[in-house]
């Protein structure tokens, strides 16, 4: 079973929930899919990580063969190729690696070479396998790195995926093909605004979802009203608690100091299992 933890708004507690849930229910694997700022490793502290590069194929133009016909530049939807006069240029950071330019070139002047955009890391902590990705600084395409992290997903057992915030491509890439999406939100107008957008995306993907309200006790009732209106179950509330925040800022899963939460996260998993039955 694969459970994604997503949120819409950033900073609502995705990693907090993903890590404490994983530890409480003895998950088999955690995939940190927020490749622009992975942070699950700070809490799980895996030892002996192995690193695998993530590469994309980008075009190389052989100017000895190129006739500057511009067919490749006109084909590219991402403006990664620029041809003018007797100059042909490739902007590799814009290339989405579709390979179309190579196919369309009438004189076979285009070959492809790998370009590194990030790495994935595999390690183990507390009996949980952790896989996370890091997109290189300055790179725009998070999706191929997320996809490389997901390729390491176990087919059996319980896998928890920690998503990037937002509702764009990285979230879609993380959530798709998972069995359930846990939306962590905060009971504020900001939390609600982004929760509405994110739940719409996940619903369109046909993935069942439930909400965890973090920082419960602050803000207003907007999130609760929205969930009741849309029949989205609120599966757990985590109170606004200074000690939880302090432990988080020290990189310690709060479960370790507050063991009473183990059973709460275990019953959260039971509710999720019922909803996916």
């Amino acid at each position: 079973m694969k459970i994604t933890v997503a949120s819409g708004k950033g900073g609502t507690g995705k990693t907090l929930v993903a890590v404490n849930l994983a530890l409480s229910v003895e998950a088999d694997q955690v995939l940190d899919c927020d490749v622009e700022e992975p942070n699950v490793y700070i809490f799980l502290q895996p030892d002996k990580t192995t690193v695998k590069p993530v590469e994309l194929l980008v075009p190389v133009i052989d100017e000895a063969k190129c006739t500057y016909c511009r067919k490749c530049a006109e084909f590219c939807q991402f403006n990664a190729l620029f041809v003018v006069g007797e100059t042909a240029m490739v902007f590799p950071e814009l290339c989405h690696s579709c390979g179309g330019c190579k196919l369309i070139c009438p004189v076979d002047a285009i070959t492809e070479k790998p370009r590194s955009i990030g790495d994935i890391y595999l390690g183990e902590a507390d009996g949980i396998e952790l896989v996370y990705g890091k997109l290189n600084i300055g790179e725009a395409l998070a999706v191929p790195v997320i996809s490389a992290v997901k390729e390491e997903a176990k087919d059996e057992g319980l896998v928890i995926l920690d998503s990037a915030p937002g509702s764009a491509c990285p979230v879609v890439e993380t959530v798709k093909d998972t069995d359930f999406c846990l939306m962590v939100t905060e009971p504020t107008p900001f939390g609600l605004h982004d929760l509405e957008i994110a739940t719409e995306v996940v619903s369109q993907l046909g993935i069942p979802l439930g909400v965890v309200v973090n920082f419960a006790g602050i803000g207003d009732r907007g999130v609760y009203e929205f969930c009741s209106e849309k029949s989205i179950p609120i599966l757990m509330e985590i109170p606004y608690n200074r000690r939880i925040a302090e432990l988080y800022s020290d990189g310690i899963p709060f479960l370790k100091e507050m063991p009473e939460w183990r059973s709460k996260f275990q019953s959260l998993l039971e509710k999720i299992k019922e909803m996916t039955r």
């Binding site: 530049a73 991402f78 403006n79 990664a80 620029f82 006069g85 902007f91 814009l94």
Partner: peptide, 17 residues
């Protein structure tokens, strides 16, 4: 190129050329 998700400047340069 105004609506390009990426590389609008390159697309615009191509048009100007």
């Amino acid at each position: 190129s105004i609506g390009s998700a990426h590389g609008a400047g390159i697309g615009a340069a191509q048009s100007v050329a």
